[in-house]
Write a protein that binds this DNA or RNA. Structure first.
Lengths: 349, 349
DNA sequence: CTGAAAGCGCTTACAG
DNA sequence: CTGAAAGCGCTTACAG
C-alpha cells in the first residue's frame, strides 16, 4: 500500500492516473482533493485508476503550485529537555489530521544555528512557525512575519509584535519562593537558566520580588540550563555561600543538576537543603524525596500555541499580548524547615 | 537577513536575480549551487543581485526538479522517551552541514499511525529514512525500499532485508541478569516492553538464557513501555509473586515506573528489591540509590545509523546484517544481596 | 460536470 | 564560460 518510487519503476503521476481512467489530469486532482463537482461515475473510475497504477501524491508539486507547504516549524533550543519533547507531542497532536506536518528544528540555544534552521525552514515556504528563541536571538518581527503565522512559545523576545504563549512565571516563581520562605528559609539560591533568556528574566523577577518582600538577600546563579551546568553552578554556590539552606531549580534538567550537586557535597534533601523545582518531570513524583515543583501545563501550552497558529493560518486575528497559562505549585516532600542552628549539623564541606 | 515572503512583496526568484544581474537564470543557479564554471566577475554580479533583491532559495522548486528532497525521516515511537530524543540529536548532528534536513515523525507505537506518517513523509520524496518500527508493524521490505535509503534503528522487523543498527541486547541483558543472580537473587522479575517488539524479544531472550543457566524460574512481564504502565505492571507482579527480590527494567521510562511501583508498595531499593535498568538516563546517576544500568551508546547508534543512510544515499553498499553496537553495564548502587530469610524483613504487603 | 492551457521555481540536458 | 528551451507534478483560472 505504501509502496513508493523505488529506484525502479517511474512513479505514477496525475497524468498516469488520468490516462488510465480516461479523464483529464484536473479531474484527477479534483477527485483527490475532494473539491468541485465530479460525477460519481467519474470519481469511481479515478479512484480505481489511482489504486491500479499505485499513485502516490507528490507534496512537492502541490506545494510549488500552492506557493505554500502545509508544514509548520517548531524551533526549540533542546529536544533533550523533556519540556520541549512534551510540547512537540501536544502540538503535533493538534496538527495531525488537519493535514499539517510539524517540523522539529533544534537551535541548541545558539543564535547562529537558530538563523540557519529558520532559513532552512523558510526555503520550504512553510505555513507557520512556533519558536522558543535562542538566548540573545537576533530574530526580528520582520524575520517572523515572513513565516506568516508565527507564535512564540515558552520564551519571548523583547519588542516583538508576535503572539506568544507563556507560563505566569513571575507569580509562580514567587509562590515557589514563598513556599521556602514560609518554611523558615532565608538563604535561598535561585539556580536559573541563561542570562538573557526571557524565561530566566521572568522567573528571576518573581524570585527577587518575593525575596524583597521578605527582606531576604537574593542569591542568583545563572546556568546553561542543563543538568551538568546546574550541578557545577550549585557546587560553586554552596562553596561561596555555605549558609544556603534551600534552592530553586529553573527547569527539570537544572533541578536534576541541583540534586546531583547536593549529592556531590554529601548534602541531603530536604534535611540539609530544601528544593523547589520549576517544571515537573515523571521521576520527580517518586524521587526520594518527591520534589515539590511548579508544574507548567505543557500540554495546554502546546495546544494553545498550535491553535493560535491555526487561527493565523486561517487569517483570523490573534491578540499580540502574551497568552498566559498558569502554573501550579505541587507540594511534595522536598521542602522542610532549615537545619537547626547547631553549625555541626549544617553539613557544609 | 532572514526576511521571507511575507504577505507583502512577491518573493524574489532566480529570474528576479537574473534580471537584476543581467544574466540568465541558469547562471544564477550555477553560482548558487557552486557547480560548473562561472567567471569571477559574473559570480560577483550575481551575488550582489542576490543581496540586492533579497533572494531566498525555494527548496520546493529545487526538489520538484531534482525529484528528490534533501530530507531524511526519523520515525520513532515516542519522542518523550529520552533515548529517542538523544537519538534525534545525534542523527541531526551528522546531517546538519551535509544539507540534509531531519524530519521527526512519531508513530505513538501504533502501526496505523506509522503508515500514515510514512505516507506523509513519502509525499515529500525524501532522500532516506531511519525507522524504529511500531509494534506489529506491517511495514514490508517494499515499503522501505521506496525510500531508497532506509535503515532500522533500535528496533528491527523479522524478514526485512534492510540494514539495521541495534544494541547487543541478548548479551547485555544476560549480563544484567547475571549481575542480579551473582548477588544471590533467584526471583528476578523482567519488566519488559510490548510483546511483539524486537527489542522486547531480544532482551527477553538474554534474560531467559541467563535464568535458565542458573536454573532460576523466569518471571516475565510485558508493558506498554511507559512509566505508568511499568508502575502498574510491577505492582501486579509483586502481588502475584511476593517473593520477588529483584527487577530488570526494559528502558528508562520502565525503570522509572519500577521505582515508582516500589515506592507505592513501601519497598526500598536495594534493601528490599534490587534493580538493574536498561538504557541510562541522567537522573539515574544520582538517584538514591544510583541505578545500575546497561548503558546503550545512543550517540554511537545515531551516528552509525546516520552514516549508513548517507552511504546508501551515495549509492555505496551497506551490509544488510544488523550492525551491533555494544552496551555497557554500569555498576552503581541499586544491587544488593536479597533480604534475609526472616519473612518479617521482606516488607511484602 | 469536465478539459486545454498555463505556470509555480528550479535545474537538466543541449547548444553555442 | 554562458544562454534558450524544456519539464519536474501539481493546481489555478478560464472555457465550455
Amino acid at each position: 500500500m505504501a509502496t513508493l518510487t523505488g529506484g525502479g519503476e517511474p512513479s505514477a503521476t496525475v497524468k498516469t492516473v488520468a490516462a488510465h481512467a480516461g479523464v483529464s489530469a484536473q479531474t484527477v486532482s479534483r477527485v483527490l482533493r475532494g473539491t468541485g463537482y465530479v460525477s460519481e461515475e467519474t470519481r469511481a473510475k479515478v479512484l480505481a485508476a489511482v489504486a491500479a497504477v499505485g499513485y502516490r501524491p507528490n507534496a512537492v508539486g502541490r506545494s510549488l503550485r500552492a506557493a505554500r507547504t502545509p508544514m509548520v516549524g517548531l524551533l526549540i533550543t533542546d529536544i533533550g529537555n523533556p519540556f520541549y519533547a512534551a510540547l512537540h507531542k501536544s502540538v503535533e497532536a493538534v496538527f495531525r489530521g488537519r493535514g499539517l506536518t510539524l517540523m522539529l528544528l533544534n537551535s541548541d540555544d545558539d543564535r547562529e544555528t537558530e538563523r540557519q534552521q529558520l532559513d532552512l525552514l523558510g526555503s520550504y515556504r512553510p505555513s507557520g512557525l512556533l519558536v522558543a528563541p535562542a538566548v540573545h536571538s537576533t530574530l526580528t518581527t520582520g524575520d517572523l512575519a515572513g513565516f506568516g503565522a508565527a507564535v512564540l512559545v515558552s520564551r519571548t523576545l523583547p519588542d516583538l509584535a508576535v503572539p506568544s504563549v507563556v507560563t505566569n512565571e513571575p507569580e509562580a516563581m514567587g509562590e515557589a519562593t514563598r513556599e521556602l520562605l514560609g518554611a523558615g528559609h532565608r538563604r535561598i539560591a535561585a539556580v536559573l537558566g541563561p542570562e538573557g533568556a526571557s524565561t530566566t528574566a521572568r522567573r528571576e523577577a518573581g524570585y527577587r520580588e518575593a525575596m524583597r518582600a521578605a527582606r531576604a538577600e537574593p542569591l542568583v546563579f545563572y546556568t546553561d540550563q542543563t543538568g551538568p551546568g546546574a550541578r557545577a553552578a550549585l557546587r560553586q554556590a554552596l562553596h561561596a555561600h555555605p549558609g544556603i539552606t534551600a534552592a530553586l531549580g529553573f527547569n527539570a534538567p537544572v533541578t536534576e543538576g541541583i540534586l546531583a550537586g547536593l549529592r556531590d557535597e554529601g548534602l541531603r534533601c530536604p534535611q540539609d537543603v530544601s528544593l523547589v523545582g520549576f517544571t515537573d518531570a515523571p521521576w520527580m513524583a517518586f524521587y526520594p524525596p518527591p520534589i515539590t515543583v511548579v508544574r507548567q501545563p505543557v500540554e495546554d501550552m502546546g495546544r494553545l500555541a498550535a491553535r493560535l497558529v491555526l487561527d493565523l493560518v486561517d487569517g483570523k486575528p490573534v491578540a499580540p499580548e502574551p497568552h498566559v497559562v498558569p502554573g501550579t505549585l505541587l507540594r511534595r516532600e522536598s521542602v522542610a524547615a532549615p537545619p537547626g542552628p547547631n553549625p555541626t549539623e549544617q553539613g557544609t564541606v
